[in-house]
């Protein structure tokens, strides 16, 4: 299946969880926040949240700004 990850298409295994995606990206343990289809998915739910074809996933972090 294909998702949109930070605006770019990405192939994922069917039924992949958000935790598995985060791990595949090498972001486990990093301070990030995730929204799927414009809804926040709390960190505590990443392991049980299964992605679906066409999901729009945003992964953000803190950067310098004023």
């Amino acid at each position: 299946m294909q998702i949109q990850l930070n605006g770019e298409p990405r192939q994922c295994d069917d039924g992949q969880t958000l935790s598995q995606l985060v791990e595949a990206l090498g972001l486990t343990g990093r301070r990030i926040a995730i929204e799927v289809n414009e809804e926040i998915v709390p960190r505590s739910l990443h392991a049980q949240m299964r992605l679906a074809d066409g999901d729009r996933v945003e992964i953000v972090h803190a950067i310098g700004g004023g």
């Binding site: 090498g26 992964i59 803190a62």
Partner: peptide, 20 residues
């Protein structure tokens, strides 16, 4: 202290320093 929120650069060095 204020900061901005942006998309995480994917494929970045996992040891990259973090603002926080």
């Amino acid at each position: 202290v204020t900061f901005a929120v942006r998309r995480t650069n994917l494929g970045q060095n996992p040891d990259e320093a973090n603002l926080l």
